[in-house]
């Protein structure tokens, strides 16, 4: 209750796009997150760092609405998730417009080509015409340098290509916040630098990025802020 009151006040602050307050998340008897507080302003690139099991991925999943939590609250650009209760469908629908997520293993739809992966949600969840979705999808693929792979199936894409398609897919519905889980895990240094440049390009469009990573160099080179986690708490 106290958290909620604080959130309303904080959410009113002009540039806060994401606020996490007192996020507590248990899996069975195991505590994964034990009261995480985090405020992110529009246009930040936040690197979530910490040892394996510190809860980086879980925070991203909770913000994306994939992980129910016991207490605390999450406010994403005005959409409110409260702990201890099932999220109502309309709230979840609103949340999906605010947050995009790029998974560690990309999770591209294996039966669809790159461009079909990008266009699926705009057409089916947002009612955009297939033609318009395709035009925008190709723009995105072009912006990320993979337009020539538009017709390829995911299994024919390299790791770097698949990641770019996955980012394009997440951005196709134009969410202000983009979550990325371990994006550098499978990239060589050159690709990693390219990814960093890509993220900085997104930042210039006033998009907010929250990136979980193990990679200190990447975080120092490209993040605007590093948040360290240990045992389910922000250190």
């Amino acid at each position: 209750m106290e958290d909620d009151a604080a959130m309303t006040h904080a959410g009113a602050e002009a540039d806060t796009v994401l606020e996490i307050a007192g996020l507590q998340l248990l899996r069975g008897a195991r505590t994964i997150l034990s009261g995480v507080h985090l405020r992110v302003s529009r246009g930040e690139i936040v690197a979530l760092m910490g040892p394996s099991g510190s809860g980086k991925t879980t925070i991203l999943r909770a913000v994306a609405g994939l992980e129910p939590f016991q207490s605390g609250a999450i406010n994403v650009d005005g959409v409110m998730l409260a702990g201890g209760a099932d999220v109502a469908k309309p709230v979840l629908r609103d949340l999906r417009r605010k947050v995009g997520m790029v998974f560690q293993f990309h999770c591209l739809f294996e039966h669809l080509s790159a461009i079909e992966n990008v266009c699926l949600a705009p057409v089916h969840a947002h009612g955009i015409t297939p033609e318009a979705a395709r035009t925008r999808g190709l723009d995105l693929l072009r912006a990320f340098g993979v337009e020539h792979r538009a017709a390829a199936l995911p299994r024919h894409l390299s790791g770097g290509e698949a990641q770019r398609v996955a980012i394009a897919r997440a951005l196709a519905v134009d969410p202000p916040v983009l979550l990325m889980d371990e994006p550098t895990a499978s990239l060589d240094p050159e690709r990693r630098a390219e990814l960093g440049a890509l993220l900085q390009g997104l930042q210039r469009q006033r998009r907010t990025l929250i990136v979980s990573t193990h990679d200190e160099d990447f975080a120092h080179d490209f993040a605007t802020r590093i948040v360290r986690l240990r045992d389910g708490l922000v250190v």
Binding site: A64, R96, G100, F103, F105, C107, F109, A121, A125
Partner: peptide
């Protein structure tokens, strides 16, 4: 992962089933 990716894109459960 396939299902969660579809959910985060805003597809309904029915769409997750029929499209993905």
């Amino acid at each position: 992962g396939q299902l969660e990716a579809a959910r985060t894109l805003g597809l309904s459960e029915r769409q997750v089933l029929t499209l993905v």
